[in-house]
């Protein structure tokens, strides 16, 4: 009875879409990197850095979209470091990625203390407000669930469509996919594998940072260190879940978000009274793992994922 009430409330679906938004940005970013053949484990740290950079830029007086742009640039810069180490230097992508996460997280903490040495609780900003889409938001139920979100959420879904278009309908996207499948094919056709891979990592990292910035600029109005809270790692799994396809990855993000929104509401039902709340927190992760097992049985992993490409090696 309670469960049905939850599923039929517009607020539940609105929360699902909202919770999915940062995951969509970061998952698309990771997907772009992996399609080009680079596993970017810096995602968690880049999201933290993006969350902080966007927020502090707005706090310092930039408009909200300025904050989004700053987050993208900071992510792109961190991605630039990652890409130099992982692409032309061909270092282990696991080590580079974990290193980037540690570096980005620590650097964020450091910057926070440098900029705000005295504060005990982080200052608030005025975040993105829900934007009712004319006409569509008036549709009963669906209007409240889907078309009364913030601008960044709409951007996330738009971005998924753009990403799918670029990957499958442009020469650039073809080159990116080929770089992740068979870099030799790219090189023998006279394109630079290095440039394509570095570009993908830089842009992808920028998107991850916007995912982080969503948390401070749209979902909430301030910055806390624990706020990214493993979302980056979830996105790595979502890319696999989505079989490296933008559309499926968005579905995965929505599914995870639905589990998350569901468990929060379930905690408030009578069931929440006798089950420890940690059990509910666990739910989305367990369900994600199960879904991952089912979905990724025959996923098409990019054949050259994590394989460095060195010109002239035989």
């Amino acid at each position: 009875m309670d469960i049905l009430d939850i599923l039929f409330s517009a607020a539940f679906w609105a929360a699902t879409v909202r919770i999915a938004s940062p995951l969509i940005f970061a998952t698309l970013g990771e997907l772009l990197c992996e399609r080009a053949g680079v596993l970017n484990l810096g995602i968690e740290g880049i999201m933290v850095a993006g969350a902080f950079a966007g927020w502090i830029a707005v706090w310092a007086g930039l408009p909200l979209w300025g904050g989004v742009a700053v987050a993208f640039l900071v992510g792109a810069m961190l991605g630039g470091v990652h890409s130099v180490l992982s692409v032309p230097f061909g270092l282990s992508q696991h080590v580079v990625g974990i290193g980037m996460t540690l570096l980005a997280t620590s650097l964020t903490f450091y910057m926070y203390r440098v900029i705000l040495p005295e504060v005990s609780s982080p200052p608030k900003i005025t975040a993105f407000q829900p934007l009712d889409i004319p006409v569509l938001s008036d549709i009963p139920f669906f209007g409240a669930a889907l078309f009364s979100q913030t601008a960044l959420t709409y951007l996330a879904f738009l971005l998924a469509a753009v990403m799918a278009y670029v990957l499958y309908r442009t020469p650039l996207g073809l080159a990116v996919r080929a770089a992740g499948e068979r870099p030799e094919a790219v090189a023998t056709q006279g394109l630079s594998v290095t440039a394509i891979r570095m570009g993908a990592v830089i842009v992808g990292s920028g998107l991850m940072a916007i995912g982080g910035a969503f948390l401070t600029l749209s979902a909430f109005d301030s910055f806390f260190f624990e706020m990214v809270n493993g979302r980056g790692w979830i996105c790595i799994a979502l890319v696999v879940f989505g079989a490296w396809r933008p559309g499926k990855a968005v579905l995965g993000a929505l599914l995870f978000a639905a589990f998350d929104a569901f468990q929060i509401r379930l905690q408030q039902t009578p069931m929440g009274a006798f089950l420890p709340y940690q059990f509910f927190l666990m739910m989305p992760y367990i369900l994600s793992i199960l879904a991952l097992i089912v979905m990724s049985r025959r996923a098409d992993v990019p054949a050259a994922l994590m394989v460095p490409f060195n010109k002239g090696e035989r």
């Binding site: 309908r169 020469p171 073809l174």
Partner: peptide, 11 residues
């Protein structure tokens, strides 16, 4: 692959 301008919007 590589035969059309990389900046082109349509494949």
């Amino acid at each position: 692959l590589g035969t059309q301008g990389i900046g082109s919007f349509v494949l």
